[in-house]
Computed example of a mutant assay.
Amino acid sequence: MATLKDVAKLACVDVSTVSRALNNTSYVHPDTKARIFAAVKELSYQPNLLAKGLRQGKRNTIGVVIPRLIMTVFAEITQGIEEEARKHGYATLICHTEDSPKVEKECLNRLRNGFIDGLIIAGTGRNTRLVRDIHSSGLACTQIVRKQDSLISSVVVDYKACGYEAVRYLASKGCREIGLINGSMQLTPYRDRYEGYRKALAELGLSETSAVSPQPASVHSLEYGYDCTLELLGTNPKLDAIIAAADVQGIGALRALKEQGRRPEQIRVISLTGHIIGGMLETAMTSMEMPAHEIGVKAALMTIEEIDSPEEHKAGPRHLVYQSSLVEREST
């Protein structure tokens, strides 16, 4: 493998000149720089980025801790993070936890002791003290989707408004028995959606029918949406609409309704977390869609800005709240 010395020898310059040219830290004559880059190409020289990062006290890597990638909005968010981080010369290390506090804690401890400059996390809320400790140690931190700690920057969505608007929309379609498939009330998005749902029902004089998971990890499954739909139907046979917290739950709900012989015009279904797959189903699903890719991009930018800010100029936490937008499809 070629070294910096090999490049310097072939370009007929000293090692420090090669270093200055490659890092663009000071002026190098254009002709000299051209010889150096020609030597780099001829020798297929690859700089040791890890050693460089250690010398500079920087790893150019961001850790990303999320519940799950498969069939969730976190896949699109993570893609936004990766694309934006790459533009700024950063790599990403991704950990998924299935919303297990134990797994999350293990991931956080590995990342903090490894080679990362910053952390982006959609946490369970059970390791808030550890995340705060990691942030206090000098690592940049940004919360996504779930804001657990007001002392750490966050990029989230107005979930109360999301739940509220979904109920009002279904009511405008003539629905009066509106059920909710939700997640653990320990997690902010599910708790806030429920509050928005209840507020709208109260204003309209409607009664509540909801199914809430006792186990956070189970909400990310088709089976959970399927089982909750059967529970809702058993609780309220007059049900004429279902709000699902996420598309994966909504897909399970649509399957259960089909097996029960219920048509879309009989029981309308809407998801509160739109995913691209929802629009490709046999019965395309209406959803309140969050700007997932944009959330990922913004989270990456905020984290990189914190990493690059001098210690004496570090800004306080920033909290960005996006709005969801209604995309109407066949399920309503």
Rank of each mutant, 00 (worst) to 15 (best):
M302Q: 10
I295R: 00
N24A: 15
V65N: 03
P216V: 00
V145W: 06
N109D: 09
M280S: 13
L201S: 08
P317H: 05
T235E: 11
R132V: 02
S44A: 13
I178S: 07
S331V: 04
G138F: 06
I66P: 03
A75F: 09
A245M: 12
C175S: 15
E312G: 01
E330H: 13
I270Q: 11
P67V: 00
T3W: 05
L272R: 01
R193I: 08
G179F: 08
L254N: 06
C228T: 03
V65M: 00
G179C: 06
T235Y: 06
A284D: 11
L222V: 12
G63K: 03
N113I: 00
T3L: 06
H313T: 09
V157N: 10
S207G: 11
D31P: 02
I307H: 05
V269T: 11
S218E: 13
A246Q: 15
N127Y: 03
Q249H: 02
E98P: 03
A34L: 14
S184Q: 01
A2W: 02
A2M: 02
G63D: 06
H313W: 12
A122S: 15
Q143M: 11
A75G: 14
L130E: 15
G163Y: 01
C162F: 06
R55H: 15
A241T: 09
L151T: 12
D117G: 02
G252H: 00
A39L: 10
G174H: 01
E305A: 11
A299M: 04
E312H: 13
G57W: 10
P310Y: 02
F115K: 12
T25P: 08
S325Q: 15
L326S: 07
I152D: 05
V327F: 13
K298T: 10
G296K: 02
P291T: 04
N109P: 00
S154T: 05
E104R: 01
L139I: 12
L170Y: 09
G261M: 04
G80Y: 05
T229S: 15
H88K: 14
Q186F: 02
G279D: 14
V40P: 05
C162V: 10
F115L: 14
Q79N: 11
L180E: 07
T273F: 00
Y226M: 01
R20D: 10
H313F: 13
L151K: 13
S207W: 02
K33T: 10
K298F: 08
L93V: 15
Q148D: 14
Y169M: 09
H275C: 15
G225P: 06
K238E: 14
T229W: 04
L232V: 04
T286R: 04
Y27M: 06
K105V: 07
Y27W: 10
E76H: 09
V327W: 02
E195V: 12
R268Q: 15
K258L: 10
I116P: 00
A245R: 01
